[in-house]
Design a protein around this nucleic acid. Structure first.
Lengths: 211, 211
DNA sequence: TTTTACCTACCTGTTTTTCGGTATATTTCG
DNA sequence: CGAAATATACCGAAAAACAGGTAGGTAAAA
């Protein structure tokens, strides 16, 4: 049994069943104090008045994007060790997560041993990947990472509105911008996707789950 | 074996963490004997020599399709109560599962109470749906069959080319049509989707896997 | 056989997007 | 702090999309 008597481990996952499973696994194998949350904002609230040493963070949450949440947590509380837990087995997601400060990435079909092992590694400062995550990263280096542009928050917002059928002037009204500004964003988005018009941008963005 | 009069509940899920969670929840709240499997074939093997009363069946399994597995189990062992457990929140999946003999459908974000409630209902022969599953089934019927327009072959072809970034004149050249014809098709497509421009059409078409 | 659906094509407009620039204030980050 | 990224805004012109019509030919279905 590992001994971490005063360390706090937080679980952020919107599946009560998963939380129960993780609690059960960890309570019997470690000495962590365990707290759990089903939304990102609940956890951020908790952090205002409490501490945490390790976080098991689901990427898919009802109220937040796990990628951004991870970055935000790391920015405010750099000492927290974040391990991402997700069903998403896509290379780009794993890479983005690690880039945003996660210490590791576990797929939800990881075994209990892998989980404990990754927590240990993460706390030692090593990069902790479950077997399947490792396979994906070391696998065929597809060049699609280059063609998945990272949009800014504003750009994503505007792209989403475009995909819902709003014109540039509609969007300008909605966001209290000049339509010229919206058109500038449009151009930048199209350029980032290295394509020639918005139609293909929307297709690509949908394929890569950006919208 | 101990206590043959006790009811047996089987969990079939490829996520060890989920299995732990379900075991933990059910062991403390019910008197079931609990067995678990991570593959469909493991479970089928078990059924050759053992019985089960209730099955919590994940739809996504490494070696089998949950839909077919459900049908097979029901055909061989009609008395087993099957509850589907899945992350997939799509109307058509739920409907297919119920048609294949499942007594209920739980989304993985269901609460412990919902889970216990559904097991009870399922064993009484009632249809047991978690709240969110119920919402999806009773919800806007518009989203699935009614508002998914059926495009003709030509229209699909043109929509696909538009989503790849080709303009009407590009498409006209490629398909040896007048660009006026292409524009007519565009208008008909937009009308079928009951929207105002191609951008939202592409989004909707991607969502419904038409392209 | 009449109807219906589909593919094709055209006309006349208006609206919207796209492309070529430039430019400033703010925010973020090394 | 200084540099880079981001969000904001403007001008002008060309290209494309959108919207309202109409309409002929073909093939399948009622």
């Amino acid at each position: 049994m590992l001994q971490h008597d005063q360390l706090v481990l937080a679980i952020v996952d919107d599946h009560p069943i998963v939380i129960e499973g993780l609690k059960n696994l960890l309570a019997s194998a470690t000495g962590f104090d365990i707290v759990s949350f089903t939304t990102g904002s609940d956890f951020l609230n908790y952090l205002k008045t409490n501490g945490a040493d390790v976080v098991l963070l689901d990427i898919v949450l009802p109220d937040a994007n796990g990628l951004e949440l991870c970055r935000d947590i790391k920015k405010k509380y750099p000492d927290i060790t974040i391990l991402a837990i997700s069903n998403q087995a896509e290379r780009s997601i794993i890479q983005q997560m690690l880039q945003n400060g996660a210490s590791g990435y576990l797929l939800k079909n990881a075994s209990a041993d892998e989980l404990l092992d990754c927590i240990e590694k993460g706390m030692k400062g090593e990069t902790a990947l479950s077997k399947e995550a490792k396979d994906i990263l070391s696998g065929p280096a597809t060049n699609d990472w280059n063609s998945i542009p990272s949009l800014t928050k504003r750009e994503k917002e505007i792209l989403r509105l475009i995909s819902e059928g709003l014109s540039s002037t509609d969007i300008a009204d909605k966001l209290y911008l000049s339509q010229l500004t919206v058109e500038t964003h449009r151009r930048n988005i199209i350029q980032k996707f290295q394509t020639n018009n918005m139609f293909s941008v929307i297709k690509l963005a949908m394929e890569h789950k950006i919208i």
